[in-house]
Design a protein around this nucleic acid. Structure first.
Lengths: 206, 206
DNA sequence: GTCTATAAAACGATAGAC
DNA sequence: GTCTATCGTTTTATAGAC
């Protein structure tokens, strides 16, 4: 099929421009120009702008899902899986400082109750929380699992905003450090059930 | 002066609509209609949309500055001042869950390097960090003061995003709880200089 | 100072030739 | 499948009467 190429090019250009300039500020003309496709032809692949935006966010969602699958496949310890998932954001640190998080940007932008694109972006977060929650459960933190999972993504999102506001990528590195230290020092309740002396959510590394 | 009323009405309507619907999605016609002022008359008070947006953000900035002044005036202990500043977000919890943080929204939306409105929004954050930094310094945490101050605002911003994404206001309450517990358990290094046994950034309350 | 009418540009989307 | 030309709407912004 020859059509797949142009369709994918549109999705990739859309995802990039939405990330860099925002959903509202990016016009279909911008996307078409970036993908080197005439404006009129865009509507052959996507009937509306919303449909293209949905495809772009769906692609991000699949990329993250593939990431979780890779972590499950290569790392046995759920604690190390969580740590590795947090370290991912060190790789995109400078990009997030300049443009913010591509998913967070969409969540912030519009109404979660009305906008379909925002709902799909929210699902990306929901999927991470569900995944991280399972890891915390495996470490024996069933009652706090959901709250802990949310803490991680909230930490990353907050750091991304403050990094952008202060134009300082180290804000993200600091937050990653804090989260990793916290996860490292979390007790494994599945094994040592008697000891309750914990020192969690620590700022400082050991 | 009779002109001050309409000008202020425009700024208030703009601030509200920018918060609820975003900067890009809010048209001058929307603002004029909300303030009950004909569109053409808007341009008598503000030459461009950017000028009106600047005035709206400047007003938010002044409100926050007034808040810091009030804290300094009524609370002696810098630790309690910090705690009180965090508890503020409990009051706006439901609003933030629906619409996000009015300042964070602007930061996320556009380019910090080019957009003047975003730069002013960034100054609101910078002002909080500078204020919180001074409080941490007074507690003897000079070297970590700036990092700690950034942690607070990052925590709030991240919680606001996750609360909106999951439509769950408790995410913000949880984060406030975490931050307050952390501040409460921070050692006062100005007084007890010898003891280094600290247990900071704790998730759980005592 | 206030308001109507309208210009000028950008945008999402469509029609229809190829 | 591809592309040009263009419609209809919305948006920022201005001109000019009152």
């Amino acid at each position: 099929m020859t059509t797949i190429n142009k369709r994918d090019r549109l999705i990739e250009s859309a995802a990039l421009l939405f990330h860099h300039n925002g959903l509202n500020a990016t016009s279909l003309a911008d996307i078409a120009k970036h993908a080197d496709i005439p404006i009129g032809n865009v509507y052959y692949y996507f009937k509306t702008k919303e449909e293209l935006a949905m495809a772009a966010v769906a692609k991000r969602k699949e990329q993250f899902s593939a990431g979780y699958a890779l972590l499950e496949e290569h790392i046995d310890d759920p604690r190390l899986r969580l740590i590795e998932s947090v370290y991912y954001f060190e790789k995109v640190r400078d990009e997030y400082t300049k443009y913010g998080c591509p998913i967070g940007k969409i969540i912030v932008d519009a109404d979660v109750e009305k906008d379909h694109v925002v709902q799909m972006a929210a699902q990306v977060f929901a999927e991470f929380i569900a995944w991280a929650e399972r890891q915390f459960r495996q470490l024996g933190h069933s009652t706090d699992a959901r709250r802990y999972a949310t803490f991680i993504m909230a930490g990353v999102q907050g750091a991304a905003i403050m990094a952008k506001a202060t134009r300082n990528p180290e804000v993200i590195s600091n937050e990653i450090q804090r989260l990793v230290s916290w996860i490292e020092n979390l007790p494994n309740r599945k094994i040592q059930l008697g000891k309750v002396a914990m020192k969690d959510m620590s700022t400082e590394a050991a």
